[in-house]
Design a protein around this nucleic acid. Structure first.
Length: 233
RNA sequence: GGAUAGU
């Protein structure tokens, strides 16, 4: 079962989902890891509904979910906006105690934030003892996506106050909030942060800086940033 | 032997 689960995983990750599934079906003793390997393959290729169907099937076989299964289901719910099922899974997670797991906590934050239930996402982050940069970026991305621009800034500040360095994703979200608010002064401050933390050589960050300056009414600075970006050779 | 955030 160990070897076959590894093979299922390999095939599933390479996008050979059919092969992974065939292999999986022929296993005589499938365990929770085999299910998890198959589900992560499906989720990584965007087959959310298939993951939910596999979950039904797994439960019918009497296999108890573990943290990886929960992660897959939560991610599937998050991607399809399945807040109702997500809440049910959340309840089950609370009963099993895996809610203190960092990845599970972060995925719960992502679920609620992405589905627009941002206050619930914030509550989970507050309760997550070992929250990290991913926890904050999941929350902040939710705020940015749903137009809570002021909360993007507030939480950008909060994460730094507790000593967590903003990641590239967070900077992209904050720049997006600057654009939404046409906040040039804020954008300039963020630009200084970005330079100080050496994210300015990153092409995606650079592109967002250009976008921000162009839309906030400072095309000359947009041009400067453009010129500073590394050229392909 | 399977895990979480931006594009």
């Amino acid at each position: 079962a160990v070897v076959t689960s590894a093979l299922v995983n390999g095939n599933a990750k390479n996008g050979a989902l059919k092969e992974a599934y065939e292999l999986f079906k022929r296993m005589r003793k499938r365990d929770v890891v085999s299910w998890g390997a198959l589900m992560t393959g499906y989720i990584q290729h965007g087959y959310c509904h298939a993951v939910l169907e596999l979950f039904e099937e797994m439960q019918l076989e009497g296999v108890d979910p573990d943290r990886v299964i929960f992660l897959c289901i939560l991610k599937a719910c998050s991607q399809i906006g399945g807040l109702t099922l997500g809440r049910l899974i959340h309840d089950e997670i609370m009963r099993t105690g895996v809610n203190r797991d960092l990845a599970v906590g972060n995925t719960l934050i992502d679920l609620y934030a992405r589905c627009g239930s941002v206050e619930e996402a914030d509550v989970i982050l507050q309760k997550l003892q070992n929250r990290d940069a991913v926890s904050w970026s999941a929350l902040i991305a939710g705020y940015a996506q749903h137009g809570y621009n002021v909360l993007v800034f507030k939480n950008f500040k909060r994460m730094q106050e507790e000593g967590t360095k903003p990641s590239k994703s967070v900077y992209l979200c904050v720049l997006k909030a600057c654009v939404n608010l046409a906040a040039l002064a804020q954008g300039w401050v963020i630009h200084q942060h970005i330079v100080k933390n050496a994210f300015d050589t990153d092409v995606e960050v650079g592109n967002s800086l250009i976008d921000m300056y162009a839309k906030c009414g400072l095309p000359s600075e947009a041009y400067q940033v453009f010129r500073m970006l590394p050229k392909p050779d």
